[in-house]
């Protein structure tokens, strides 16, 4: 009985792995930068700051972090060793701003946008008219 339970558990695990592998195989993404980049906005006593961590996925000669266009270069960095950077952001009261954060590693780069301060106004979607063209639904935007 115990053997049967083990067999069922192993089979279920293998099936799960196979399913994951199939799902992964279906997703062939674009070349990425060898870095894990996280950024967040934090409120401080005097305003706002952006906090960034950039950890290369392999040992690299340098890691460069850009916050709102200001670049800071770190030297050789071991795999998974996060480089930490904090930058204050000046904002008028009740104002908001999108801050671009970029990590440049081994000739590639990754960017994220951090919203600081007031939320961005919601973008109003353009009105769309759906028409059937040769049996296909076409969403028409008028210029």
């Amino acid at each position: 009985m115990r053997t049967l339970v083990y067999c069922v558990a192993i089979a279920a695990s293998l099936a799960l792995v196979a399913t994951d592998a199939t799902a992964e195989r279906r997703h062939r993404g674009k070349p990425s930068a060898p870095v894990s980049l996280t950024a967040k906005a934090e409120r401080t006593a005097s305003g706002w700051r952006v906090v960034v961590d950039a950890a290369p996925t392999r040992a690299v000669d340098a890691v460069t972090i850009e916050i709102d266009g200001q670049a800071t270069r770190f030297g050789a960095t071991a795999a998974r060793d996060a480089r930490h950077l904090v930058a204050p952001v000046k904002l008028d009261a009740a104002a908001g701003k999108d801050v671009v954060v970029t990590a440049r590693v081994a000739g590639r780069s990754q960017s994220v946008i951090v919203r600081v301060g007031a939320p961005a106004p919601a973008a109003k979607p353009l009105p769309v008219t759906v028409r059937q063209i040769n049996g296909v639904s076409v969403a028409e935007v008028r210029q």
Partner: peptide, 12 residues
């Protein structure tokens, strides 16, 4: 688009 409708643009 994400709703699977083909992109279309209408002129004046």
């Amino acid at each position: 688009r994400r709703d699977r409708q083909v992109h279309g643009v209408g002129g004046e």
